[in-house]
Design a protein around this nucleic acid. Structure first.
Ligand code: ZN
Ligand code: ZN
Ligand code: ZN
Ligand code: ZN
Lengths: 132, 132
DNA sequence: TCGCACACGTTATAGCATAACGCAATTGAT
DNA sequence: ATCAATTGCGTTATGCTATAACGTGTGCGA
């Protein structure tokens, strides 16, 4: 999907996420934008909905947080699976794509006649810096 | 992990999940157990915590719900990855294990020195019955 | 000019999860 | 037997996550 001009609120949310070093929850974003006039969760959620739709932000289901896409210019999300490694210590996220995993999962599901539409792959652990 | 005798609350929660045809949220479980004396969310969450620890129940992060393990007797969760296909129409869940995917993901991460600890793999889509 | 789509603001509400307190039963050492 | 530690349980209160529903304004094409 091609990304249209962002609105004011969308830009503010996107900028906050871009500057963050770790995924942020919607309410954390809200707090960071109070000085810019944000007052209510919906202002954040509506912006996030669009950013997700445009594919420039990802939602991490396992931690109810949001992160900017690490590969916004690869047309990878459309034809390959996206996976995330999330450090439980520092919060850093590694976003990666793996067509092998994709095909393998899809084959497993096809044999069961399951029609896949959206995937969530999130690995929690510790990054190189934080490993015990 | 070997599963100890379940307590009364744990059994009640486990039975509700076993009889369900789709994943249940904690609050849905609570409602189903009000006649058995459940009054507060914590009664459900505490039972769920133990059932998760024993490995007889799984949490589906992408839908904030819980489901009984489909392979409680295979010692698969300890050395292989678990994945779920979730039908967005009827809620039915297919739990499957795939060592190929496991190894592939782990190799990707090892090359980045990321130490994986917990994984979430959830594919949403439509099952054979519900496919359009 | 009319109608529509869209972004936005606000208030209220729904849904998910845990903190903190106290009590009772169990276990296992001393 | 007694004490301490652990575990389960019940209750109240609170916090975090997400959406419903209403109204406003703006831009744009029919
Ligand atoms: Zn991405
Ligand atoms: Zn780290
Ligand atoms: Zn299982
Ligand atoms: Zn179905």
């Amino acid at each position: 999907m091609t990304t249209p001009m962002l609105t004011k609120n969308q830009s503010l949310v996107f900028d906050v996420l871009t500057k963050a070093e770790a995924p942020l929850s919607a309410y954390t974003i809200l707090d960071k934008l109070r000085d810019q006039g944000f007052r209510a969760p919906l202002q954040v959620y509506r912006a996030l909905d669009k950013l997700l739709e445009y594919g420039v932000v990802h939602r991490l289901e396992s931690i109810n947080s949001f992160v900017v896409c690490a590969h916004p210019h690869e047309d990878c999300h459309s034809h390959g699976l996206v996976a995330f490694a999330i450090c439980e210590s520092c919060g850093q996220v590694i976003e990666f794509h793996d067509h092998e995993v994709d095909h393998r999962l899809m084959d497993s599901l096809k044999s069961q006649k399951f029609k896949a539409e959206k995937s969530t792959i999130e690995i929690r652990g510790h990054c190189a810096n934080c490993a015990a």
